[in-house]
Structures are given as structure tokens and as C-alpha cells.
Design a protein around this nucleic acid. Structure first.
Lengths: 197, 197
DNA sequence: GTCTATATCGTGATAGAC
DNA sequence: GTCTATCACGATATAGAC
């Protein structure tokens, strides 16, 4: 996003390597126990070397999540056959990137809970973006008649996000929880209440 | 729960004081930045003194949350007039105990994400208890006909929990989010799809 | 049973050498 | 652009005072 280094190939590659290894370390130890030193050691640098690429531990975590969001956009936009399917596919995909789920859950809770957290704004904007994307999904489904119109759309959008977030914690505690099936159940509750049932 | 000390009045009072002050410090700094030293200083002890009452920082956090759950039970059981109202009242009450919401969000995410976390089992059991309680609520509502029967009950129970948990993070980022109104919207989606609509 | 003093070790961050 | 050295601060373990 905001490269702190030049655009030399070597620096960019190192930066990408740190992002990948950082995620790896988080996945193994959790966000709280993931240390800059450990990441540095694996990438062949000292802690100070890592901080040269990322201002702080916090910024590193934030950028790992931002990179994930960029990659996920492709999955989200594949809304086949229903408008919600892109979102459900994303939740399914999450089961294959445990470390990211873990980082997201821990780090978003930390950032939200502290008024001066350096990543607080990042998450506020992320939620706003997600709300806009899901509002479009809900409105598309209302337009094609696959869901009803007798509910509060912004509330349902927030519920779709909250359900996914909350289910991630339940899933981490018990991998038998099927996150996308659960959100799909929520989606089906939105079915039109007129005829056709 | 498992008092590490005797039953002398002085020890019990100090223990209770540490729990209260611990929550206070968490509320100000977030769980991650809440230190045993800070809690100890405010309560007039050294860090080792605090550890005498609570084996570790983790155990202290867990006991703060367990104490909250005990107190909350009373609110949850007041299901007036609908079976879900006790749960909704709880979410409303949460807006008045920001520190607890913050601790719960951060600490549950941390515990869930790490397989060897000392509080992992605590949260697994807490979720199981909550599932049992909410299953009873859903079944009671189905019995009195206020909600439908054409959905997966365990899935909806998990959704009710996940929605509440996920909304807490959204609420911390933006206090205008009305958590109980959102979950009430989810509940209303469960209304029977036959006649009476 | 209650608590302090002390020591060890790990942490993120920084300054300045190379 | 990367290092070494160092800082201030954290959790925790032990020994023992009272």
C-alpha cells in the first residue's frame, strides 16, 4: 500500500517475503504470540531489519490483512449462481487459510477495542467497504425476487457480516462448524414470504 | 471458581478487588495492553502479589469473564415477554460494560486461535452452555408458535451467538450500531411462514 | 496465608555504525 | 539498506519475610 522502501526489485521481494512469513508465524503462534524477532529470523534479518520495511508490528499485521482482502475480491465477485454465492465461497475459502482467520479475529478485536489503535481506521473502512458490497448483493437478490423486501436492509447486511465474523471464532474452537452453510441458512431466512413457498 | 487462597475475609476481598481493577485496566488499555504490573500498582500490590491470587494473567482474564457470565444469568433468564427477550436484554446491557465487551472479544479470539491456550476449554464449554440455553429459547418459541419450524435449529442457535459476537466488534468501531435491535431483526426473520402474516 | 524482593528472560522500538 | 547495540518494559519463577 504505502511502500516504505524504494521500488528496487530486491526490496519489493523482501517485503513480500516478510508478509508471507509473517502470516506463517501468526498461523503457528497466534497474533499475540507472533513476534517480530521470530519473523525476522525466518526471513534472514534482524528485528530492526523487518521494521525497516514495516514501521511496526501493527502495520505488518494490517498489511497482511489488506493483501488478503485484495486477493479475496476475485472470489467475492464470482456470484454464481446466486448473488450471495461469492460471499459464501469466501467463507468456504477461509477454512483453508486458518492463519488469516486467526489473525483477523484477534487483530480486529484488538483494533476495535482501543480508541487510539493504529489500525482502527483501517477496520472502519474495511467494514464500510464490505457493507457497500453486501448491500449491492442484497439489492440484486431483491431485484430478482429471490429474497423478500420486508426487512431492514442495512441491519441484514450487518448481520451477514457479524454472522461470518462470529462464526469464525466458533469454527476455530470446533472445525466441524460449517461457516458457509450457516450463513447460507441465514440467507434462506430472507426468502420472500409471499407465495412461491 | 478455584480459589487459590483460603477463605479469610481479607484474601477474598483482595481477590474481588483485583477482579474489579483488572477489568478497569482492560477497559482503559485493551486486553493486550493491560499489564499485571499496572493492575498490581492500582491495587497496592506488586505483580507477584497479584499472581498469588491468580496463577497468571490469562487466568485473571478468564475469571473476570466467568464472573460476568454468572451475573448475566439473571438478565438472560428474564424472558419477558418473548423467549428471546432475555438474550436481547443482555446485548443491551453490554453497551453499559464496554470493558467487558472489549475483553471478551479480544480474549475469546486469542483463546480460540491457539490450540494450547489455557482458556480454550473455558470458551468451548461457555459456547456449549450458551448453545443449550438458546436451544431452549428457540424450542420454547417454536412451541408457542411465535417462530417457524422450517429451519435448522442448531444452525440458527449458532447464528444467534455469532451475530451477537460479531456485532460487538462492529459496535466497538461505531457505537451507533444497535446490537439488540439487529439480533431482534434476525429473530423476526424466524417468524412462521404460514398464515398469520 | 499473604506478600515482597529479586533475577531471568523475552518483547518492541530506537540510534547510529557500516 | 541492513546491521549491532541497547533501551525500557513486560511476564514469570524462586526464595523467603511476615
Amino acid at each position: 500500500m504505502t511502500p516504505r522502501t524504494g521500488t528496487y526489485a530486491k526490496g519489493l521481494a523482501k517485503r513480500a517475503e516478510i508478509l508471507a512469513v509473517g502470516l506463517e508465524v501468526v498461523a503457528e503462534n497466534g497474533c499475540r504470540r507472533a513476534t517480530v524477532r521470530e519473523i525476522a529470523a525466518r526471513v534472514g534479518l534482524t528485528a530492526a531489519g523487518v521494521v525497516h520495511y514495516f514501521e511496526s508490528r501493527e502495520e505488518l499485521f494490517q498489511e497482511i490483512l489488506a493483501a488478503r482482502d485484495d486477493r479475496d475480491r476475485e472470489i467475492f465477485e464470482d456470484k454464481q449462481p446466486r448473488p450471495i454465492d461469492g460471499y459464501l465461497r469466501l467463507l468456504e475459502h477461509n477454512t483453508r487459510v486458518r492463519g488469516l482467520v486467526q489473525l483477523y479475529a484477534e487483530y480486529s478485536a484488538e483494533a476495535a477495542g482501543w480508541a487510539e489503535h493504529p489500525s482502527r481506521v483501517f477496520f472502519q473502512e474495511r467494514f464500510d467497504q464490505l457493507r457497500a458490497d453486501l448491500t449491492a448483493v442484497v439489492q440484486a437478490a431483491q431485484a430478482d425476487g429471490s429474497i423478500g423486501r420486508d426487512f431492514d436492509v442495512p441491519a441484514v447486511v450487518n448481520l451477514l457480516i457479524a454472522a461470518a465474523d462470529g462464526l469464525q471464532v466458533q469454527w476455530m474452537l470446533d472445525h466441524r462448524i460449517d461457516m458457509s452453510a450457516h450463513v447460507d441458512q441465514l440467507w434462506r431466512l430472507l426468502a420472500p414470504r409471499t407465495a412461491s413457498e
